[in-house]
Amino acid sequence: MRWSEISIHTTNEAIEPISNILHEAGASGVVIEDPFELKKEREDQFGEIYQLNPDDYPEEGVIVKAYLPHNSFLAETVEAIKESINNLILYQIDIGRNTVTLHEVKEEEWATAWKKYYHPVKISEKFTIVPTWEEYQPFSSDELIIELDPGMAFGTGTHPTTVMSIQALERTVKKDDVIIDVGTGSGVLSIAGAMLGAKNVQALDLDEVAVESARMNIKLNKVDDVVTVEQNNLLDGIDTQVDIIVANILAEVILRFTEDAARLVKKNGYFITSGIIQQKKQEVKDAILSAGFVMVETIQMEDWVAFIAKKM
């Protein structure tokens, strides 16, 4: 089978929405080339492996790559991707250069191209993300390992918005909690919730590709007895009372269901939100407070914000 690599030169702010656009267009994984990775200070005691080549990264901005089947619909697919990216401006998202390039690759190149970017990374006090093909030995008995395959998942689980979400779950999940993960994507937050002791996790996503990816990763991590995955639009039709709702999605989407979250979260339960750019920080915060939550903590990493709010 023939494949085409699509590359979008954009901004860090636009990584998440563009990745989502690419997945909806049929991409089975994305690669993010961010020059910040070349400058990041790292320690070796957590088992990370870093062999980064500066030639693989742009001098400024970021490049998001994905692989699409080279078929008769490719031209229409690429045009639809370009249109969707241009529409991000309507949401005040900076798309930067927005240079889109396309070239054909051999299947064996497509199958392994992204692996050089992805190695074990300790993302929080307890969790380490490990690609399925890497051998990794935990450094402590209480270290929690999440295995992911970005060839079928939505990203590697190491983006700041995901890291902050998992850190927030570490601070809030109690044994036997009930959790809803809105916009589950790869299922990584649901997996983390289950590993932290939740007795039931409901993972929701509107995208059927995400649903299948989440199911595969959840089974891979042996938490399918705790986590169920369903195709669903946000919290529509959900009546379950829960201890925690976590959502790592665009700020504009979070604004659509803060009232529903307040309806479903139990007293003293938590609403964790991430995927929020700095420009949207106050708007999302105001909506969460207006829905009846009390802000417990604001977490910031690079240009991203996450909130931990409590139902009083």
Score class of each variant (00 low, 15 high):
233 N>T: 14
109 E>Y: 00
138 P>E: 00
309 A>H: 03
52 L>K: 11
197 G>V: 01
55 D>V: 08
28 S>E: 15
4 S>C: 13
23 H>Q: 12
290 S>I: 06
164 M>W: 07
192 A>T: 04
25 A>Q: 12
97 R>Y: 15
99 T>D: 15
89 I>E: 15
295 M>C: 12
306 A>L: 04
175 K>Q: 10
137 Q>E: 15
105 V>H: 08
212 E>Y: 09
41 E>H: 11
285 K>T: 11
133 W>D: 05
107 E>A: 02
226 V>W: 10
203 A>K: 08
102 L>N: 15
105 V>I: 07
154 F>V: 13
185 G>P: 14
24 E>T: 07
28 S>A: 05
277 I>S: 03
148 L>P: 11
293 F>T: 01
245 I>D: 00
114 W>G: 12
223 V>C: 14
109 E>D: 09
174 K>F: 10
75 A>W: 06
118 Y>S: 04
229 V>R: 08
214 A>I: 06
306 A>S: 14
58 P>Q: 06
129 I>F: 09
18 I>T: 07
64 V>M: 02
269 G>H: 06
183 G>V: 04
66 A>L: 02
21 I>N: 01
275 G>C: 06
11 T>K: 00
229 V>N: 11
310 K>P: 15
186 S>H: 07
213 S>H: 04
215 R>G: 02
33 E>Q: 09
133 W>N: 06
70 H>N: 09
150 P>K: 00
294 V>A: 07
304 W>L: 10
199 K>D: 09
2 R>T: 14
14 A>C: 02
259 E>C: 05
269 G>D: 00
40 K>F: 09
106 K>T: 09
36 F>Y: 11
44 D>M: 13
167 Q>F: 06
244 I>V: 10
246 V>P: 08
267 K>P: 11
192 A>G: 01
218 I>S: 08
226 V>P: 07
42 R>H: 12
64 V>S: 01
215 R>L: 10
97 R>C: 08
211 V>A: 09
75 A>E: 14
102 L>R: 12
124 S>Q: 03
229 V>L: 04
117 Y>N: 02
260 D>G: 12
44 D>Q: 07
173 V>E: 01
74 L>F: 11
162 T>R: 10
205 D>L: 09
276 I>D: 05
223 V>D: 09
152 M>K: 11
9 H>D: 07
174 K>C: 11
169 L>D: 02
146 I>H: 07
49 I>Q: 03
108 E>N: 12
288 I>W: 06
50 Y>P: 03
228 T>K: 04
167 Q>T: 15
80 A>F: 07
11 T>S: 01
41 E>K: 13
308 I>S: 13
193 G>D: 05
298 T>Q: 14
80 A>L: 12
